[in-house]
Design a protein around this nucleic acid. Structure first.
Length: 426
RNA sequence: GGCGGGUUGCCCGAGCGGCCAAUGGGAGGGGACUGUAAAUCCCCCGGCUCUGCCUUCGAAGGUUCAAAUCCUUCACCCGCCA
């Protein structure tokens, strides 16, 4: 076990996951024995997204190395709003909504941690538990007194906002709340390490100061770099927005595709960050990839591992089969109904009643939602980007006929190269 | 509370009475080339019952033949003063 622990920081470095730490030597020393550490996730949406996975995976790596992870859901901080990395004030969500999101996010986080471990089980915590019962007077006297406004103003998250559109007292207070969390976890669990994205540095070190002042204790901070892509665009975003873990928000099919379509220049880096493969395994994939990038073995492995972890092995296999069939490696007409049905299961769809008049090509495209409006559908058809069962169709007024429905039931619509939808005859 | 500046399409940002669905950039989409990659080139990018019509320039009223552009009130943001 101590060997795993010794290697942890080295491994994180190799994966490009270390941005800043407080006193790395002292941290390395501390990590020789199991410690307790935490990462916070604020409920700012009904689901976490792939961007959140970076640091969540780091937390899991610590657990695998024998440390005690505390995934924290920000039931309290989510009500306030972190100014870090945001250049404008957010609108507050209602307490009901945030409470719902807390529950959903807890469920998601649970998938990535081992709560049953005999030696170092994860413990889920929610900062609302210790924040809600506190009175304003207590907060100001016991916590607020330890903060210097001068220092608070100097934090990046605050000063950039002061230069731009300003900041409310609510968001200004965020760092105090987060510091309080660290102090509380230090007291309850002897938690001595907080990790987070690099934009969290200011909030984390504020917590270290608080622990030192109140408990004369010493603790550590470790931040993970912001993940960047080779082409400079934001990681984890697609045309439709963020890539979420919730299958209702991002279908497993789309999730798998997101990874499969990674830029060649990014794929090895993504494997380092988002897989639990060993260094040897990743280096082997790197070799395979550079020898034959067109085969995209590394991409496939990445997509499989993540989809399996986030959804399931079964779903991962299903969407991969679906992708193969739908991308023309197989003749759609030759698929049996079972395969076709499962291939189409994860796609957006529309239904047509058997016997009713079948809508025009443009109407169908719009109805499935692969395009936003009929105007958009017309545009796509005009530009030659609309396909039926893998064949280009160019007439706006074209209508499907019974014979177009494979197995008498399904028609596969496609916009562009990879945006698919299904029409089901019922 | 006072004075000044601001609010334009997904984002940034021009326009400052008709030639404006509104310049430009970014993001996004389609095509060609490829490997469901990148780069490159071409095209598109409010909606619809689509050679025309409808709805948009913070909100509501008003002036005008005609308003994103002028006037009034309101809301929000920023700055300075109290």
């Amino acid at each position: 076990m101590s060997n795993r622990m010794n290697n942890l920081l080295e491994d994180l470095k190799w994966r490009g996951l270390l941005a800043q730490t407080t006193d790395e030597k002292a941290l390395a020393e501390a990590l020789k024995k199991p410690i307790t550490l935490y990462v916070g996730f604020d409920p700012t949406a009904p689901s976490i997204h792939v961007g959140n996975l970076v640091v969540l995976f780091v937390l899991r790596r610590f657990q695998l190395a024998g440390h005690n992870p505390l995934p924290l859901v920000g039931g309290a901080t989510g009500l306030v709003g972190d100014p870090s990395g945001k250049n404008e004030e957010r609108t507050l969500n209602t307490t009901d909504v945030v409470a719902q999101w807390v529950d959903r996010i807890k469920t998601q986080l649970s998938k990535f941690m081992d709560f049953e471990s005999k030696t170092n089980p994860a413990v889920m915590v929610n900062n609302l538990d210790w924040t809600a019962p506190m009175s304003a007077i207590e907060f100001l006297r016991d916590i607020g007194k330890h903060f210097s406004v001068n220092q608070m103003l100097n934090k990046d998250s605050v000063s950039t906002r002061l230069e731009k559109d300003g900041i409310s007292y609510t968001e200004f207070s965020y760092q105090v709340l987060q510091s309080m969390d660290y102090l509380e976890l230090y007291r309850r669990y002897n938690c001595t390490l907080q990790i987070g994205g690099s934009d969290q540095w200011g909030n984390i070190t504020a917590g270290l100061d608080l622990i030192r002042r109140v408990e004369a204790g010493s603790a550590h901070a470790l931040t993970v770099p912001l993940l960047t892509k080779a082409d400079g665009t934001k990681f984890g975003k697609t045309a439709g927005g963020s890539v979420w873990l919730d299958p209702e928000m991002t279908s497993p099919y789309a999730f798998f595709q997101y990874w499969l379509n990674s830029d060649d220049k990014d794929v090895i880096n993504f494997l380092k960050v988002f897989s639990f493969k060993t260094r040897q395994e990743i280096e082997a994939l790197e070799k395979t990839h550079s020898e034959n990038p067109g085969a995209r073995e590394a991409h496939r492995e990445l997509a499989r591992e993540l989809t399996t972890l986030v959804h399931s092995a079964d779903i991962s296999a299903r969407v991969e089969v679906a992708a193969k069939a739908l991308f023309g490696q197989a003749d759609l007409a030759e698929l049996d109904e079972q395969t076709l049905a499962s291939a189409l299961a994860e796609l957006p769809r529309t239904q047509v009643k058997n016997g009713d008049e079948i809508p025009t090509w443009v109407d169908l495209l719009a109805a499935t939602g692969v395009v936003d409006s009929k105007s958009a559908a017309r545009r796509i058809v005009k530009e030659g980007g609309a396909y039926l069962n893998n064949e280009k169709i160019s007439g706006e007024d074209f209508r499907l006929e019974k014979s177009h429905f494979l197995c008498g039931k399904y028609a596969v619509l496609r916009k562009g190269k990879r945006d698919l939808a299904a029409v089901e005859l019922i």
